[in-house]
Nucleic acid binder design. Structure first.
Length: 381
DNA sequence: TCTGGGGTCCTAGGACCC
DNA sequence: TCTGGGGTCCTAGGACCC
């Protein structure tokens, strides 16, 4: 009870300007749409952006499939080898074979920046939530009709400039806007007004709430909870037991209460790279080469990031049975040395290549390196 | 069917200090 | 010989997101 009062006080404090109008803009099949828009020969074809399928032998997953490819059952996170098979099957049925493309981040980042510029013409508070999602504040417009009109304009400008579509949700906070943006994809625009928001949430499957993933969904299902309405029967304490600290936020979220602010930019907490081998291996030369490339890549990003020092280094090893181990070491002092980064990460990696941490000589599928505890301050003498 | 790569946040146990 | 409590840092792992 006391906590609830505290929360309500907090809401009052953050919400000094009164009711908010928040929009969430989510690009439709972003990577695939950009590729399709960029090459006339791809127009109308099923397009799959992801790792190299290598004639069905590739190891990665699908990053984005356009809507045409989705008709074949191809979707994000699907193993690329299966996507390949589905495409071959479609071909055998006389349909178009899918176009497989690898990820071109530079192109997508450029498009991201252009979209950001368009949104910024209409909102002073914009949060790029990922490469293809943006939250922005339209409270200044005072009403939902005007917010809707502005979002139509933004959609139109994006369509004209980039030849791709997006879906937008508008609501009283980030939660409602995000969920509603996903409801009418592609090319949708959904407005959920305050008076409707709680009822709107009640009928949704719990999985629609961002933060509830497959594990939590199952835990809830075992308790007979499938839609948000069921979830509302749980007390804050019960939610805390299921979902820890976040469970308490969830108690409010299912009631349509979410005062998370728009955050225009945030500092990175870690910089890392990882890579899966083409074939699982325990070969020192192969692993060493990969390791060196990863370290160089991470250090290059570190230099470009503007950070001056790191204090923790870490590695990841994934074995052929998919068991994944991480190890980290915090240094005695902040460092800016590439040599130290390599030496310290190598010290963490080596035990996994011999019997110290790999007694059964399992082959390695993936290795990764990263740095954490980054600081923008130079080392003080 | 066979599972990428980039991250964030949270938890829990142990070390260590006062 | 029996035995605190609080705070912070570190590490490993897990869930989640795009």
């Amino acid at each position: 009870m006391e906590q609830k009062n505290q929360k309500l006080l907090d809401i009052g404090k953050n919400n000094v300007l009164g009711k908010r109008i928040i929009a969430h803009l989510d690009m439709d099949a972003f990577f695939a749409s950009l590729e399709e828009a960029g090459s006339p020969i791809f127009k109308g074809k099923p397009i799959v952006v992801g790792s190299d399928p290598k004639n069905g032998q590739g190891r990665g997953v699908v990053s984005t499939a356009n809507y045409k490819a989705r008709e074949y059952g191809i979707h994000s996170a699907l193993p690329i080898s299966i996507a390949w098979r589905l495409s071959q099957k479609a071909k055998a049925e006389g349909k178009d074979e899918a176009v497989f493309l690898t990820v071109d981040f530079e192109r997508y980042e450029k498009a991201h920046d252009e979209i950001l510029e368009i949104i910024k013409k209409y909102s002073k508070e914009v949060e790029p939530a990922s490469i293809d999602e943006f939250y922005f504040d339209l409270s200044y417009l005072k009403n939902y009709k005007k917010a809707e009109d502005i979002c139509k304009k933004i959609k139109e400008e994006i369509r004209k400039k980039l030849k791709v579509t997006c879906s937008v949700g508008i609501g009283q906070n980030k939660l409602i806007s995000k969920i509603s943006a996903g409801m009418k994809k592609p090319d949708g625009l959904v407005v959920v007004k305050e008076k409707d928001s709680e009822k709107y949430l009640e009928l949704l499957p719990v999985r629609k709430i961002p933060g509830i993933g497959p594990k939590t969904e199952q835990v809830l299902k075992d308790k007979g909870i499938e839609i948000v309405k069921d979830l509302k029967k749980l007390s804050k304490t019960e939610l805390r037991e299921i979902h820890g600290k976040w469970g308490e936020d969830l108690y409010y979220k299912v009631r349509g209460i979410d005062e998370d602010p728009i955050v225009e930019s945030r500092e990175a907490k870690s910089i890392g790279e990882q890579m899966t081998f083409e074939h699982d291996t325990l070969n020192f030369v192969e692993i060493g080469e990969m390791f060196e490339n990863l370290c160089k890549g991470v250090f290059k990003s570190f230099l470009q990031s503007g950070f001056k020092t790191f204090k923790t280094v870490g590695i990841t090893v994934r074995f052929s049975d998919f068991e994944t181990k991480t190890t980290a070491k915090t240094l005695k002092k902040e460092s800016k040395s590439e040599k130290e980064f390599i030496i310290e990460t190598l010290k963490l990696l080596l035990p996994y290549m011999d019997k110290r941490k790999n007694p059964r000589k399992k082959l390695i599928r993936l290795i990764g390196v990263k740095m954490e505890k980054l600081s923008s301050q130079n080392i003080l003498i």
